[in-house]
């Protein structure tokens, strides 16, 4: 579990727009270990999706990625298109929030799945078909053989996401990136998909990156969690540490503002005041400072570096005191 599969160093993603540059991801360092589930949580504009799109080589055409990304020791950032296509199918795969947009509505599900195997593995159509039936069964789709000859629109949202997962796993990738895989789904279906991902991880040892805005989803599945804000990593910790002993005010704000069923109902929800950050601006200080209850003059002037608090717990914050209600009064 200690060997790192994917190593990101100094990743920066920038978009050029008519109104000047937008800094989507800044100075990102992280590792994904073999077989783990890494959760990445953040709100819109946190750069959580752009990070992985950049790694998959799927950035919009006005986007540029810089830095280094190594998969099994091999540099993969900004590879030429051909090499990237080969890599994408075979060693890492990505599934998206809306499976419908990732599928061709004019081809049967079977055709889209077998194509992957024919292309990457050079299998015959018949061989590939047998494998695809097996893959659909492994994601608990009944009547897999008949399902193969159906079109994407004949599937429900949850089923489509299962098909996407099955397709992604056909080539046995070492890394599966899931970008908001359950956001478009109902809670009951979401629970099933999360259970499925957990099962697959245990069966195939695939490392999973789970990108989401939902702290509840992360808590179900992740081993380690990275919290992103304004394109920066603000906290990183093992999952129990993050939910139990977070050390960043933004993590605190996120956790406290989620309405929860397991706690008594309060009259008012806790909130994070203010608005999401403007990514066109690069403040000298901490990007969370305008919304932070603990901010000081130092936070305004100096970007807090990501420092280790021991036991694989990292955070980027100047504030040293206690968090929580006591901390706020202090």
């Amino acid at each position: 579990m200690t060997a790192s599969l994917l190593e990101i160093r100094n990743l920066a993603v920038r978009f050029t727009t008519g109104d000047g540059p937008v800094y989507a991801v800044n100075d990102l360092d992280l590792q994904v270990r073999r077989g783990e589930v890494l959760g990445m949580v953040g709100e819109s504009g946190s750069g959580k999706s752009q990070t992985w799109l950049a790694i998959m080589g799927l950035l919009a055409k006005n986007g540029r990625a810089e830095g280094s990304v190594r998969l099994g020791g091999e540099e993969i950032l900004n590879l030429p298109q051909r090499a990237l296509t080969r890599l994408r199918g075979a060693r890492m795969a990505m599934i998206f929030q809306d499976p419908m947009t990732a599928m061709n509505p004019f081809l049967t599900v079977g055709r889209q799945m077998t194509e992957v195997l024919e292309w990457h593995r050079g299998m015959s159509r018949r061989e590939a078909r047998a494998r695809c039936i097996g893959a659909l069964e492994s994601v608990h789709i009944a009547d897999a053989a008949q399902r193969l000859s159906m079109y994407p629109h004949e599937f429900s949202g949850g089923m489509r996401q299962r098909v996407m997962i099955a397709t992604a796993l056909l080539t046995e990738p070492q890394l599966l990136i899931c970008d908001e895989p359950t956001t478009a789904l109902d809670v009951t279906v979401q629970a099933q998909i999360l259970a499925l991902l957990d099962e697959l991880r245990q069966r195939f040892g695939t490392a999973i990156v789970l990108v989401t805005h939902d702290l509840g989803v992360i808590a179900q599945l992740a081993d380690r969690v990275i919290v992103m804000y304004a394109g920066r990593q603000v906290e990183q910790a093992e999952v129990h540490t993050l939910y139990g002993a977070y050390r960043h005010p933004y993590t605190e704000g996120l956790l406290r503002s989620v309405p929860r069923l397991d706690q008594p109902r309060s009259a008012r929800l806790a909130t994070i005041p203010g608005r999401p950050p403007d990514l066109a601006r690069r403040p000298a200080g901490c990007p969370f400072e305008p919304r932070c209850a603990y901010a000081s003059e130092l936070c305004r002037q100096q970007m807090p570096p990501l420092v280790s608090l021991g036991e694989a717990h990292l955070r980027a914050c100047h504030y040293d005191g206690a968090l929580g209600p006591q901390g706020r009064e202090a």
Partner: peptide, 25 residues
Amino acid sequence: RLLLSAVPIPDPALARRVGPTREEL
């Protein structure tokens, strides 16, 4: 009850594993 049990709770200590898949809508 089904709806309530499916809501994920943001606490890894309380993370619930749902049973085998049920029929969809």
